[in-house]
Amino acid sequence: MRRELGMFFALVLMCAGLWSSNHDFLNQSNIMNSTRQIAMLGIYAVGVGFVIITGGIDLSIGSVIGLTGVLIAKISSHAVGCMGYSIWIGIGVAMGVAMLIGLAQGLLITRLKLQPFIVTLGGMLLIRGISQTVVEGGTLSIGGIPFAKLADSGLLEWRGDPLLPYPVLIFLVVIILATYVLHFTVFGRYVYAIGGSRDAADYSGINVKRIEATTYVISAGLGGIAGICYASYTGQMSQQVGIGFELPAIAAVVLGGCSLRGGEGTVLGIVIGSAMMKVIDNGIIMFQLKVGSRTLRLDTNWTFIIIGAVILIAVVLDQVVHIVQGKRRTRRAGEVVAARQRGFEITPT
């Protein structure tokens, strides 16, 4: 929990700094927009978190998000070239396909002992290609169906904006469910045990393959839900939606305290990590410094430099703490051995 607390303070500090530089950071529309962005990232980052905690990786998630939106547009939109079925059929088919993709990848990884990196890299490209084929290289509009308003509408209308947009509501449900599953169920315990030591989990009679494969289904499933949100948010689907989405999710998961070695991390950490990623994004636009009559702003070309630097600083700090703790542990173990050896010399055997 200490790491989550540290990240939380860093986040609060960042927000306070941004607010003091530009009071618009905390105005209603920016907050609404930011939380919606955080929610949409967070939904699938939690899914990726499940995979990462078992010691795997899911690179295909961005493509799953894209394909979900494309399928919904193709099946349910009334635009030219689309089928115009009910939105529920579109969502059902898209979610089913997403979860099947997760299952297929999970089975390839566990049954054929393939490396998660390469399987999901292949999946990423293959699924991207399917999306492109479905949209035939162009764009499909989702306009004209009530679904298009999902991302913008929500509960508790106030001053023309919902206080609780639907993506945020979905995110809250995902957080609660994921927290329950990961921290309070046997399944969650197994996820951590596999990440901590696959061999020991196997020697304890755990069905390692099934649990691992399930995490890929969870990841792809949450990717599908995120895909629904993004589809309604963008309003029109092309093969461009979802490209590169896996990386902010992995960054959020790692910032939130999960180790890519597996076995570590919490849902709360992933939520904080997702918030951090999007606040940095938003902060680069909002940040300003008033020097006399001039207002200095950050060049948006710096976005990637700043995000990259933040991630590197976070992992470096984390590793330094890790090394220091490890050294302390070895020293303590050494003292125990030394004490025992002294004991040997005193007691005659």
Partner: peptide, 21 residues
């Protein structure tokens, strides 16, 4: 260390691991 225990887990979590379900 490799097969018997999940080192980053606690005594209680390791004790219950095979039977927790």
């Amino acid at each position: 260390k490799r097969h018997g225990l999940v080192l980053p887990m606690t005594v209680a979590q390791n004790t219950s691991l095979p039977d927790v379900s």
